[in-house]
Design a binder for these strands. Sequence first.
DNA 1: TTGAAAGCGCTAACAG
DNA 2: CTGTTAGCGCTTTCAA
Lengths: 337, 337
Amino acid sequence: MPNISMKMLAKELQLSLSTVSKVFTDSHEISEQTKQKVLALAKQLNYVPNPYASSLRKRKSKTIAVVLPDVADSFFSVAINGIESVARDKGYHVLIYLTHELLDRERAILSEFQSGRVDGVLISISNETTTDCHITDMMQRGVPVVFFDRVCEETPTTRITTNDRESGQLAAQHLIDAGCRNIAFLSISESLPISRNRLAGCRQALSAQRLPFGADNVVMCTDDEAENVQIIARLLQRPDRPDAIIASVEKLTAAVYLACKQEKVSIPDQLKVISFSNQNTAAILNPSLTTITQPAFNMGKMAAETLFTSLRKSHLPLKAETLVVPSTLIVRESTGK
Amino acid sequence: MPNISMKMLAKELQLSLSTVSKVFTDSHEISEQTKQKVLALAKQLNYVPNPYASSLRKRKSKTIAVVLPDVADSFFSVAINGIESVARDKGYHVLIYLTHELLDRERAILSEFQSGRVDGVLISISNETTTDCHITDMMQRGVPVVFFDRVCEETPTTRITTNDRESGQLAAQHLIDAGCRNIAFLSISESLPISRNRLAGCRQALSAQRLPFGADNVVMCTDDEAENVQIIARLLQRPDRPDAIIASVEKLTAAVYLACKQEKVSIPDQLKVISFSNQNTAAILNPSLTTITQPAFNMGKMAAETLFTSLRKSHLPLKAETLVVPSTLIVRESTGK
DNA sequence: TTGAAAGCGCTAACAG
DNA sequence: CTGTTAGCGCTTTCAA
């Protein structure tokens, strides 16, 4: 049985193809009577228009792409929830692509987005991404982009971020208030604005208190958990072992706890820990984890809404601005007495 | 600047449209020379064929849909990783849809998949889904479906599951071996095969030891965490308080730990806990959590591979069979001494 | 208010 | 080996 088309509806009802088409675009130049007739038959036969024929003709796909480094991360998975919910609302479809932190992958993925596959792109860049030509290229070809969380700061389009710098500052200040004097900052990238800004905020808080914070206090981590455990273990073995750790991204949390267990360093007595994390297990860790929690759902939602609004009125291109949704410090036991 | 098309390449090179097209389908009836010429210009102009024109003509979209209850769940997010990796490999695109455990949503989503939007569907059903007509309808209309994890057992197509029954048995037996006699099973659905089978395995292990396991031992939970904490707290307040809990899905874990904290029940002394979970924080909970861990990546991968293989040879429809990938019991402190 | 016709960009016979 | 032609299913002038 071939898929049912407008042509078939038309023939069945002795109407012209264009009349039927106009019913579905809800044209006001169709009589109520024929409209009902067409809709009735369509419902009865369970007709669904071919989206690609329509895309081809109208030159828009009602589809967006979401490009992420990884989906096994609470921030990103909750952000997807936000994105999907507004997409569904507006009748858009969501293609998902994972870069796995690889710039080449990111490039390859974006290069497929010209030619109308998607009407727009929501992206959180990989940690290898230090140049944005693959992104500006795409924009030049008419595919609008909205960054969220991991943004390119120079690219002239809208960015949705959280207040990374203030959050870094807040985290450090919280640790200082708890009596810490030697804070280590775990980073995953030297280039990513989220890393740089969180670090900058941290540095600022320390220098405001005239506390030392040198190159040794910043520890670069990797994509591999076992390796990170070793890196952190070595950090804990230093003669001037830090009295606090700020984990700048969620996936470093487990490595910190495991390294502490391995090195028999007790949290929070010997080491206070704070993590940028959206994991809902933070509360049931032991000690429960003090976190900077990002508004993941809302960031996803805002990114999508911003994109859709701009798609609706194409005369209003995306402004080169950063929209900031603040994060929350949730104090728990890992930074306690 | 309009998007570049084959017609433009053809005109530029003084070739016919069909010749150019044949170059891109890598037809062997094109001379090496013209092939190179076309490819060179295409690369120079950064030509990417319009996927929807091609879909329309070829009646296949090189796109699949992944339909999930939720993405903020380690199992599903890792499964997406598996799916995406093979999709990328095979040149497929992945549309993602979330049902949020709502049957109506699931129906609405699937109903859009006729008319060629996708070549096939990977689905993990909602916990409201007790009937499969929306799914068989789709299959009848020529859209193949592969279930994974949360399957419909009667639907005649391929299912990828883990060994739920054996895992339930294994979990219960492990608790029995640890000395437990009064095990509570936390469920999220009476209909979902994963719930039913895990429960059946558990029941089997207990009855094999002639241990009682009645209706009271099965506790139905909800989609709301705060509510679940209350439900579990009440369970812990019972005069015949259980000495062990099996949480049948990952998202119940936090509620169990929180309820224990609230009711001052200590794990594992007063209550042993085992959870079906893929959370990588299981190891850093305190006490660390004994889990039944599912092969999420491989299940996603297998589901996708199965679908793609069947798409490639359309004469080989999907067999009505269940492919089982075993889970692993990872013993940690929560079921210890 | 309805219909005829052109065409979105591509593929696939079929001819040459 | 290359070109001509007829659509895929839909939208959109334009004419009736």
